[in-house]
């Protein structure tokens, strides 16, 4: 695709999408939102660039490989599994605590949130990987 409007718009819309995805990620767990949908949006912002220009360009310009996104995300998920064992009784048990923050009643933070961030990054990696695998032209025998 080679549309100048899309290319220029992509510059701004992409960052909007990223901000929006982070908002969605943060409001998750007890309200609609969360890691998966946020990750899809963030992945979409990368895919947007891929569509506006070419996926190859995106591939060369991405400093971090999608596999690393996935690795990071899965690592966070893996870490979030453990505190439940040591503090409470079972794997994946949610541990919640509140971080005091001036002027508000404090932010709740817990291992499910860590899990959500992990999902977020994994989904970004997977989305971009999907895009690459659907568009690459490596020759098969």
């Amino acid at each position: 695709m080679n549309s100048i409007i899309l290319q220029i718009a992509s510059k701004y819309v992409r960052w909007l999408l990223v901000i929006f995805s982070v908002i969605i990620l943060l409001r998750g767990h007890n309200a609609p939102g969360g890691g998966f949908i946020g990750g899809l949006l963030a992945g979409l912002s990368l895919a947007y660039k891929g569509f506006a220009f070419t996926p190859e360009l995106l591939k060369t310009e991405m400093k971090v490989k999608p596999e690393s996104f996935m690795g990071l995300g899965l690592m966070l998920i893996f870490i979030s599994v453990w505190p439940g064992v040591f503090i409470k009784s079972a794997f994946m048990e949610g541990i919640w605590f509140t971080i005091p923050f001036p002027f508000t009643e404090g932010y709740k933070f817990g291992t499910p949130f860590l899990f959500d961030i992990g999902v977020f990054f994994t989904v970004i990696g997977v989305t971009v990987l999907f895009l690459f695998s659907l568009s690459n032209n490596k020759s098969w025998k």
Binding site: E67, S68, M70, L74, V81, F91
Partner: peptide, 23 residues
């Protein structure tokens, strides 16, 4: 009985390590 989850967690950890270190 937390060891029951180990057959899941070990391959998961190994897969992650292979994703992160590609040598």
């Amino acid at each position: 009985m937390n060891i029951v989850a180990l057959p899941l967690l070990i391959p998961f950890a190994l897969a992650i390590s292979l994703l992160l270190f590609r040598s």
